[in-house]
Design a protein around this nucleic acid. Structure first.
Length: 571
DNA sequence: GCCGTTTTCGGCCCGACTGTTTTCAGTCG
């Protein structure tokens, strides 16, 4: 049984208990346990068998009993009983903005509403406003909330939020009343998808700033507007929250609104143990309420006994333990990348010539650029026949003379065929400066066959890198079934580097797998998978994923000098 | 429901905004 399944069941119980009106702390206990189990390295079934469930923080006697029952029988009697009391359809209603457990419970109890459709009908008939605590505005907001949820699946890709955020920031910086300004929230942590955008500002004149904020031309709707906090919806449906604080609270607020929630809960707990109280206004003495720190994030972390923790690490995935042991990674910098290994040219399915790509690479101050067109069997992408490879090699040789400060490397993104053999003979593969291997067909294999297929490709001897190792497309395609631990072990044995594909809907490997692979001693490459020169800027999202996976400069081939790269690849 | 370096009971992070009601509950982050 998977840990995620157990966690999902616990979340479900928490939601049902919320709807029943159970005290907050009880439902929170279920959620904390679920979160911990979700992030657990060990198999939950193993812990059950060894009777070690209660060693999980947040799991006590009662939860251990329920989890054991779930693992052994596949269900929990307590949950079955709850389901009879509270319709599970109500859980879905909690996802509508403006509706929480109390309101959903009232809707069910008084009007018998159990799903979105019934809710919409009742609201349209004006029935909601008859309930205590509901009015006309609430009714209208609920209808709007239903509509909004249907329009957006909720989260946007990192690059969309990044571009929206950058534009908004440029606009806001023109307001003279603003002293300090930062992006906070999951965008500052560079998560692969973003739910909403958080912006933090310090100013002595918050009213003016708020006016300026809601006047932004891309605002479609103002959701809330106060003196310290406002929310708007942009034309593309992304929600943006702004907080304005005083300068002495700026660091505390930045820490608070950067999250993650888990990281902050842990930090607050640690602060309390040291006799402090931490909130968005600062770090205070628990007893005397005296202000101790808050101007910068650094001083807050320092007072609680930690070095500064980079935003990308703030996920409560071991950063506090590592910090305590002085083992926090020295993360790779956003400016330490010397080139891109994964770029498609017009030789296959890219839209730009190698010469155009090379001139942009030069503007980016890269010392190398790897041109990786598709291999011959990928006919749909105009994969290169062996004959055309010779012509491409010749073109690159000529172009390299034109770009004295840039080395154009001739690579390939060679298909791993269904039987695990590669799409070119080894004789051909040897002519490339480097070889990516990747899955582009037959995604729906069973786990064992797919794992063997990729491992056979890596064992070939000519493979340098594995492209997008899990094949996922965020929001569009699930990763194929593959035993990543075996891939990681083989990567280590065969000295094959795993790619962090930097294309925003791939980010593959993802942050957690990157961390896992690093712990096994694997090395990495970054590639944008560009099919146009506009995609070369996606590198930043790959670097972000590397940082979220705790990578240092030395873990990533792209940070090496051209000379070292040539030596390592034999190019 | 969990947890314990003042605790096996009594805490558990907490502040802002909205809408409804007239001093506050509910929601959100």
């Amino acid at each position: 049984m998977k840990n995620q399944f157990v966690a999902d069941i616990l979340y479900m119980i928490a939601n049902l208990l919320d709807l029943k009106g159970e005290i907050f702390f009880k439902t929170r206990a279920y959620r904390i346990a679920a979160q911990t189990i979700e992030a657990l390295d060990e198999d939950i079934e193993k812990l059950v068998n060894q009777g070690r469930l209660e060693s999980i923080p947040g799991v006590g006697e009662a939860l251990a009993k329920k989890i054991t029952e779930l693992v052994q029988t596949g269900k929990i009697e307590y949950l079955e009983r709850l389901k009879k009391e509270v319709p599970t359809g109500l859980i879905d209603l909690l996802g509508i903005p403006g509706l929480g457990p109390k309101k959903v419970a009232a809707l069910y109890k008084n009007l018998g509403i159990t799903n979105t459709q019934e809710l919409r009908e009742a609201a349209n008939k004006g029935e909601l406003r008859t309930l205590e605590g509901f009015g006309e505005i609430t009714e209208r907001n609920i209808l709007r909330g239903i509509q909004l949820r249907e329009k957006t699946s909720g989260r946007v890709l990192l690059n969309v939020a990044y571009e929206d955020g950058t534009r908004y920031l440029t606009y806001l910086k023109r307001c003279k009343q603003i002293e300090k300004i930062n992006i906070a929230g999951s965008l500052r942590r560079m998560k692969e998808t973003i739910g909403d955008l958080d912006i933090l500002i310090s100013s002595k004149n918050p009213e003016t700033v708020m006016e300026y904020f809601v006047d932004y031309p891309e605002v479609a709707q103002v959701l809330a507007k106060g003196t310290t906090k406002s929310s708007v919806l942009l034309n593309d449906n992304l929600q943006v929250d702004l907080r304005v604080v005083e300068e002495k609270s700026y660091g505390a607020a930045l820490q608070y609104f950067t999250g993650s929630k888990d990281h902050n809960v842990t930090l607050r707990g640690l602060a309390i143990r040291k006799g402090y109280k931490l909130n968005e206004y600062g770090l205070f003495d628990k007893n005397t309420e005296k202000y101790i720190a808050g101007k910068t994030e650094e001083e807050i972390y320092k007072k609680i006994g930690f070095p500064y923790i980079e935003p990308e690490l703030r996920e409560n995935r071991g950063e506090f333990e590592a910090a305590k042991k002085k083992k926090l990674p020295n993360l790779v910098g956003y400016d330490e990348i010397n080139g891109d290994f994964h770029v498609h040219s017009s030789w296959s399915d890219g839209s730009d010539s190698i010469e155009t790509i090379a001139s942009v690479a030069q503007q980016l101050h890269y010392s190398f650029i790897g041109i990786t067109d598709h291999s011959q069997s990928l006919k749909i992408a105009n994969g290169l026949t062996e004959d055309r490879i010779q012509k491409k090699l010749q073109e690159i040789k000529t172009l390299n003379k034109k770009f004295p400060n840039l080395r154009i490397l001739c690579g390939t993104e060679c298909d791993i065929k269904t039987d695990g053999t590669l799409d070119y003979s080894n004789k051909i593969l040897k002519q490339f400066d480097f070889v990516y291997i990747g899955i582009h067909t037959a995604f729906k294999m069973d786990k064992e066959t797919m794992t063997k297929r990729i491992i056979k490709g890596m064992d070939n001897g000519q493979a340098d890198f594995v492209a997008h190792p899990t094949g996922r497309l965020i929001g569009k395609r699930e990763p194929y079934e593959v035993d990543l631990e075996q891939i990681i072990d083989t990567a280590k044995e065969t000295d094959t580097r795993l790619e962090i594909n930097s294309f925003p809907d791939r980010l593959d490997l993802d942050d957690t797998h990157v961390k896992l692979a690093k712990e096994h001693g694997v090395q990495f490459v970054l590639g944008t998978d560009s099919h146009s020169i506009n995609h070369l800027d996606f590198m930043i999202f790959g670097i972000a994923t590397a940082r979220r996976g705790w990578l240092e400069k030395k873990d990533i081939l792209n940070t090496y000098s051209l000379k070292d790269i040539e030596k390592i690849l034999g190019a």
